[in-house]
Nucleic acid binder design. Sequence first.
DNA 1: CTGAAAGCGCTAACAC
DNA 2: GTGTTAGCGCTTTCAG
Lengths: 346, 346
Amino acid sequence: MANVCHSRPPCATTDLVIPPTPPRRAATLHDVAREAGVAVSTASRALTRPERISAPTRTHVQEVARRLGYRPNRIARALPSGRTLMLALLVPDITNPHHFGLIRGAEEQARAAGRTLVLGDTRGQAELETEHLDRLGSVVDGIVLASSRLPDAELLDLAARRPVVLYNRDVPGLPGVVTDFVGGARQVVAHLAALGHRSFAYLSGPREAWSEARRWAGLSAAGVDHGLTATRLGPFPPTVEGGPAAVAAGLACGATALVAFNDLLAFGVLRELQRRGVPVPAGVSVTGFDDVFGADFCHPPLTTVAVPTEEAGRALVDVLLAPPDDPQPTVLPVRLRVRDSTGPPA
Amino acid sequence: MANVCHSRPPCATTDLVIPPTPPRRAATLHDVAREAGVAVSTASRALTRPERISAPTRTHVQEVARRLGYRPNRIARALPSGRTLMLALLVPDITNPHHFGLIRGAEEQARAAGRTLVLGDTRGQAELETEHLDRLGSVVDGIVLASSRLPDAELLDLAARRPVVLYNRDVPGLPGVVTDFVGGARQVVAHLAALGHRSFAYLSGPREAWSEARRWAGLSAAGVDHGLTATRLGPFPPTVEGGPAAVAAGLACGATALVAFNDLLAFGVLRELQRRGVPVPAGVSVTGFDDVFGADFCHPPLTTVAVPTEEAGRALVDVLLAPPDDPQPTVLPVRLRVRDSTGPPA
DNA sequence: CTGAAAGCGCTAACAC
DNA sequence: GTGTTAGCGCTTTCAG
């Protein structure tokens, strides 16, 4: 039995006899074909294009494949076709609840389209984003980049190689979906104005983030519209850890309302305020952005801007799978969710 | 110029002249080699084993590669070598904060080892887990399965094909790391007993989860040790949505303490209790499991069992990369974190 | 309907 | 050092 494959040594290539014994190593299509007594091309078709094969051969091959425990090698399959049926979603921070909906929505839509979504966390660092892209880029059929920190040029370059869609980032010529930050900002300011505030401090996030600029633009514009003076403080880390520094700065400037870059930072702010014994909203009002998990059970429940993230996730994958001729970014409507962290100024 | 590759049609294979014009399609190693006037193997080595190539050729090839914007095709590279430098981590629920640390730890360790970690969400469904495995299985070099819902046999079968490590699941013969649920349960019960409780209700999670059985085993054992009567209620969905049903059952049985399967369920319980106007811990004590994001700022802050998840993530990847001869599961110590949701019985 | 053969892009012996 | 060549496992013309 010269050509029976044993566990370790690679198979000898000189096959003279057809052995009935299945090889112990992962069964390949060749194994199935040989065992079934057909050509590999026939075996291939029997498994992937059943309609082009006569019923008897088809079932026989499938039976043999099953018996051998054959599993197609996705890598080998992807080489000729160039398609892996995998999509990638890169987020700057997978622990940010804001991305939950995005992930869920994207995954659902991907699955519905017969694709598998793989996730990558870039930690908000361009360097890691590039690394992921290098590794995954040639492996997936398309990429969703959430809040990418990469320069426009690199994004354009990437998009020239394979389908790319952007979330909360606007690069002319590239498709994507963006949150209506400006509208959200206006709603926050209008709410604050209605409450009687005359000014507010914006606790800003990463300057590299495209969304940071959008938020501030909306906030300052709405500020002049409503006659509120807006002060931009920071940047602070967009996490609960950013709280202490943000509170220190916010209180120092005497603001009656603190508008945080996102909910995570708002959570940190709330906690720090509590530590300092500053009552919310009696002493100072606080707002967030995103309406993430926890915003309704923190203390006090947070007034924040809700973003339809699941919808965003679905839209992103849709666009990835069927790129529009006109790459206009879709803009997602948002809604202010008033809870207990905002009230009239002291 | 017969062999200049144009955008669409595949390259003609009969090259007679060496054209100076780089092809517009993604540059391949062949393009680089041709353009640099060397053999593909030389080009390959210049890019991946620089030390085995003379300085002039090496720099020349690298320069040409750069100019052509050459990016190695990971798929093609993986075919002969069988290695993609990618690792997969499949979790039942990516939105469960419990997995954050796991993901972070695993990702860090993977990166340190020069690997890229891809994440998959199985939604706690065996079916989706299988699907992910089919797709990713032959693409990654190893797999971390968190709280797998697959039967032992399938796991064993999978492990025969490629490296697999389990998180919170014990399958004889397979390496993994597990949380010390029994120890955690004992700490919870001891704490409750010290507070003066005489009984408690366990709001259980998915029966299919291996960890569910472990928790209950620890809880009931500790119950007899401390002379507390334990009642197992449920199962309830291990999410905040499970709260109402769990509270209804818990209150109906007259328990003075509610021990939730995990923090997410505990959050839901807290919220439902508040809705019903039942004071915590004055009316009833509540505990969770995991110490996830939010446990310290929910209302009231939750007494729960903290699990060193980042450490788990790192350990998991370590084991994946260097499988131990003896696949004894590593058990992770846990610590009870006492906050404000527990107190003496009414 | 089935088989033979040519690659997909890259790496790795094995020569020169 | 560098070039030649043979695949990795699969899909896909192209014949028969």
